[in-house]
Amino acid sequence: MGKPNSYENILEIKNLQTSFFTKDLELKAVDGVSFTIPKQKTLGVVGESGSGKSITSLSILRLIEEPGKIVGGEILFKGENLLKKKESEMRNIRGNEISMIFQEPMTSLNPTLTIGEQIGESFRIHQGLSKKEALKKSVEMLELVGIPSPKKRVKQYPYELSGGMRQRVMIAIALACNPNLLIADEPTTALDVTIQAQILDLIKNLQEQLGMGVLLITHDLGVVAESCDVVAVMYCGQVVEYADVKTLFKEPKHPYTIGLMKSIPPHDQDIEGDLEVIKGAVPSPAEMPTGCRFAPRCPFATELCKTKMPELQTDENGNQIRCWMHTDEWDGVKDREVTVHG
């Protein structure tokens, strides 16, 4: 595991760029993403579909497949750059120090292997346990993630389990080797709210027990507000706003963040009349705007926004924003009304 290294943050991503190469076209799925996950904290990444959340997380584990490629940046895990590691070193990290759970519990488990075999595999690869020991540990893991009658379950196949149960199994696989970082890519999107509550609760408890950092990807702002310490808002492959959760929800700065918050009808309050909407739709990757990527949909956009891409600015608290409105060069109307639902 290399020399002992002192580090502040479990993960630090700097200017990550991941592209897909099609016929004479480079599709920048992740374009200069930077964010930090402090030790034992939860970072939420939110954004609409196609904003590059999954590709960012797969890049961390270096699981990007052809025709995709990480073309630049640094991924510092415990202070060491993962992009400099050999493939065999990466394999020792995957499932051991960094684990991942995915959105679709129904398809993320191998249909022809038993639950026990699939959890046990982690123990066998990373801890060299025998088949029998691995099975015993698998039973313990199932117990940990709250699956009733685990001794029976380890012998079952995925089709015999419900969606919520399967996601618990995925969590058991991910946590088998006590990882330092858990990446959860929309872990509850396919589940019902009551099951979502169970799963998020479980992740939170285990995080406290095991002291790991969590990267929680979601498109649900409610999930972010309840489960995360810091938040990165992504739009078209870039982080447009990065802030601690209280600041983000109380004083959202980026027009995209604000628009997103206003478009969600809340369940605990009535909205008179229409919802406020962000006009238009996410631009297709082939027709990415040259200036600020949100400019075509932004109610405040000026000529500057349309022609020049703003840089990510960091304030004294470490919060970041990528918007011309929050720079000295701003040439539009300064006073905006910022209210989110009343």
């Binding site: 249909p111 595999e121 690869i125």
Partner: peptide, 14 residues
């Protein structure tokens, strides 16, 4: 191309 193959890779399987 299935999800569970990605799961296996993410586990660190050779």
């Amino acid at each position: 191309g299935q999800d569970y193959i990605r799961t296996a890779r993410a586990k660190g399987v050779k």
